[in-house]
């Protein structure tokens, strides 16, 4: 693989994603409104009901808004990952996926380009969200703003790779509602995004284990620790392994010899 060709391809895919994103302003605002509603309304309501004890990475009592901010950053990455899955299925139905897949570069690299382009857009959204949250008195240490960037990229890669995998499994655009119900919501709610795990353990041990095994929990914890200038090795290991597993499965899914692609590509008829 020629390096300059590979970089130009990555630029092309990233610019296309960015142009589409800018062109669809509604998508940008709706992607931001979702976590902001949770922050401004849900968190404000729950602040008085839910007490948060001092747990790492926090060194003092914090407001509930502060607790759920990393979870909401995770939410942005999760929805973006699923959005890129939706866009892959849409591209496949519209045929533009064929253009990408006939590019003379290895297929795993083409999928990685798609993944990186999606992560780039998601990280931009997260930065805007953090800037707005700053005015809402969510003010992590300055170093945290820098440290959170690689954590966001790692979380975005894992969730984007999951999105890629799902897009190789989803037959039609109409089936995407199922992804919402069976992937996004369970993943988000059965995690440490909204409540600390010890709270879960108090109410149900089974739920606690489900949350602990949920990769999204580790993505959120990676972001949470990084936002406060700390590092969670366990979270990084889980997120990295899951990224590798999801991406490998997605590459197999898109392999013309082994995957499911021929059954799903538009025009899959004699």
């Amino acid at each position: 693989m020629n390096l300059s060709h590979a970089l130009r391809c990555l630029r092309g895919v990233a610019v296309r994603e960015a142009l589409r994103f800018i062109g669809q302003r509604g998508r940008f605002f709706s992607a931001l409104v979702r976590p902001l509603v949770w922050l401004f309304i849900f968190a404000a309501g729950f602040r008085s009901v839910l007490g948060i004890s001092i747990i790492p990475p926090y060194e003092t009592y914090i407001l509930y808004e502060e607790y759920i901010t990393p979870g909401l950053l995770g939410m942005i990455m999760l929805f973006n990952g699923m959005q890129s899955s939706l866009s892959m299925v849409y591209d496949r139905e519209m045929g533009s996926m064929s253009v990408l897949l006939t590019t003379p570069l290895p297929r795993w690299y083409l999928l990685l380009c798609k993944l990186l382009a999606g992560v780039f857009v998601a990280v931009l959204q997260s930065c805007v969200f953090l800037a707005i949250a700053w005015f809402w008195d969510i003010r992590p240490p300055l170093a945290g703003y820098l440290a959170v960037l690689p954590a966001l990229v790692c979380a975005g890669l894992m969730l984007g790779a999951l999105g890629l995998l799902l897009s190789s499994l989803i037959k039609q655009l109409e089936n995407f509602a199922g992804v919402m119900n069976f992937v996004i919501f369970p993943m988000f709610f059965a995690s440490s995004a909204l409540y600390p795990l010890w709270k879960m353990q108090e109410s149900s041990l089974l739920l606690y284990w489900i949350c602990t095994l949920n990769p999204f929990t580790h993505a959120v914890e990676l972001i949470r620790f990084a936002l406060y200038g700390k590092f969670s090795p366990l979270a990084l290991v889980v997120v990295s392994l899951c990224t590798l597993a999801f991406l490998t499965a997605a590459v197999i899914g898109y392999d013309p010899a082994r995957g499911f692609l021929p059954k799903k590509m538009s025009g899959a008829k004699p």
Binding site: R8, R11, V13, T102, G267
Partner: peptide, 26 residues
């Protein structure tokens, strides 16, 4: 390749579609 179904990106201009293709081809 010119596929049976249109595979252009409808949200982009002609120039943007061509630039995208040029980038993919390196």
């Amino acid at each position: 390749v010119v596929f049976q179904k249109s595979t252009l990106d409808m949200d982009l201009t002609v120039l943007q579609n061509l630039r995208y293709a040029a980038d993919l081809q390196g």
